[in-house]
Amino acid sequence: MRRILLTVIAASAIVFSANAQLNRKGFYFKVAGGYFFSVSPGQFPDVGPYPPRDEHVAVNPNNGNTTVLREKVLTGSYGEGIRGGASLGYVINQYISVELTANYYSSKKNLMTRSLTTIQNTETEVGKIESKGYVQAVDVAPSIVISPGYDKFNPYVRFGFVVPVWGRLYIETDASRTSAVAGQPSFVQAKTMISRKEEIEPSPTIGFQGALGVTYAINNRLGIFLEAEYRNVPVKSKSKVVTSYRENTKIINTNTGQQVGTDINRGLDDLSVAERNTDYVTTLDQNSNTPTGTSGTTTNYKNNNAPANDLKSYINIGGLGANLGLRIRL
């Protein structure tokens, strides 16, 4: 009986000691990774002159009239993707801690616009454009953690702010077009291929976060945690720059399939300042630097030597996800 009593006392002392060490004041470090899903999808912003539509258009080759065969509004969110981060925390007392987290986020690619043009009553393709976009961002997130301070399994709630410190919306566009050649018979056609990449810089913003999780203590210094987290981070556009542009046009004799003449190429350095750079504004008026027309694939602006103006767009890089990681007491 005495031996049993001593064993119980010793075990109780070990548990009390571990609990005291787990919940005493001090710093701790966390690393985590997770995946987030979109919970508030909305309509995607325009890609230049192209609205967020997935459409199939038929063109009458005799008069140029077009008929929409199929059209769908493209919706979604940039909140779906992978996230990884590291946190430095401080235990104020058994029940309250504070954390500062730095996260890296990369969303999945989203179809932003797609348009297919075919000749009426045929499947002959004469034009196609497809744009996909994705977000990469770095943020810092201060938060407060509240828990009951249990020993092995310790549930907690965490809430705070999200402050993006860097981020870009990347848009990749591929387009093709078949068109007539001035002064040439109808069987001589120009086939143009365009590949374009652009980056949109966001305006400063702030978001909110909340999480519900549980920590499991492996020992008095190391633990693992699993949590469900919700983030709401609305972002609006500030400016855009075209970072890559490749355009190639071949003149083809469609009867023989042979190329006529040499390739016509246009690259990034051939774009005007207005074609390469865009400043986003809340209102467009007569003083805005907007397009005045096109010449082939070249877009002309009121002032080609100044950044173009376009309306601000809004996206959300928040979502609902799960994080799994390690917690190390320092």
Rank of each mutant, 00 (worst) to 15 (best):
I119S: 07
T75K: 15
T67R: 14
V135I: 15
V162Q: 03
P164H: 02
Y156P: 05
V126L: 06
Y134H: 12
N154M: 04
F161Y: 09
E55R: 15
E80I: 01
L74N: 09
A58K: 05
I92D: 02
L111G: 01
Q94T: 13
Y134P: 01
Y104H: 03
G160C: 09
F159M: 14
A141C: 04
G84N: 02
K152N: 13
K108L: 13
E130F: 01
T101D: 08
E55M: 10
N63E: 03
N110L: 09
T113L: 05
S97T: 04
K72T: 09
N154H: 06
F153C: 07
R83A: 05
E55P: 03
V126N: 02
Y104C: 00
I129W: 07
I119D: 05
A102K: 07
G76R: 14
A137P: 02
N63H: 05
M112E: 10
L111K: 14
S115Y: 04
E123L: 09
N154F: 07
N60A: 06
E99T: 11
K132F: 09
I129E: 08
D139Q: 05
V57R: 10
D139S: 15
E71F: 02
F159N: 09
P164I: 00
V165G: 04
D151A: 14
K72Y: 03
K109V: 01
Y156W: 08
L69E: 09
Y95A: 04
V126F: 03
E55T: 06
V73G: 00
V135L: 12
V138H: 01
V91M: 13
V98C: 01
R114C: 02
E123P: 00
I119Y: 15
W166H: 12
I82S: 13
T66H: 06
Q120T: 14
P142A: 02
V162R: 02
G127M: 12
I82C: 00
P164L: 02
I129H: 06
P164V: 00
W166V: 05
Y156N: 03
G84Y: 07
P148N: 10
V162N: 09
V73R: 05
S97P: 06
Y78H: 03
N62V: 03
V163C: 05
K128N: 10
S97Q: 13
E125C: 02
K152I: 15
Y134W: 08
K108V: 13
A137V: 00
